[in-house]
């Protein structure tokens, strides 16, 4: 499997670390216990298309949001998460 890192290009999956479900959003720190419980424990485990979080550990260390098929491993899209996205866009614009 290869992941197309927006910073480094197509790289082997071994360079990345899976960081869990990329579709969830971290609740605010002061959110209540139920919200945090849902965030930490409640997961869909889809067979098929899934949004995931991958850290480019052995590369640029960007956190990537990857849309991937969990059956075929086909990758549909890769984008930078949060902060890096803003910085990358800024640099690309300059």
């Amino acid at each position: 499997m290869r992941i197309g890192c927006p910073v480094c290009g197509d790289r082997d999956a071994h360079e990345f670390t899976y960081q869990g479900d990329g579709s969830r959003t971290t609740p605010p720190l002061d959110a209540d216990q139920d919200q945090w419980f849902a965030h930490v424990y409640e997961r869909t485990n889809p067979m098929g298309r899934h949004t995931e979080c991958w850290l480019h550990t052995g590369g640029c260390r960007a956190v990537l949001i990857v849309e991937r098929d969990t059956v075929t491993h086909e990758i549909f899209s890769v984008r930078l998460a949060g902060a890096q996205a803003a910085i990358h866009d800024e640099e690309a614009g300059q």
Binding site: Q19, T25, T26, C53, T57, V63, A81, G82, A83
Partner: peptide
């Protein structure tokens, strides 16, 4: 060491990109 860094990068990138 490596895990703490990765976890903090994750929180920063996904939860608090404004920091």
């Amino acid at each position: 060491a490596a895990l703490v860094l990765a976890k903090m990068e994750y929180w920063h990138a996904t939860a608090w990109p404004e920091l």
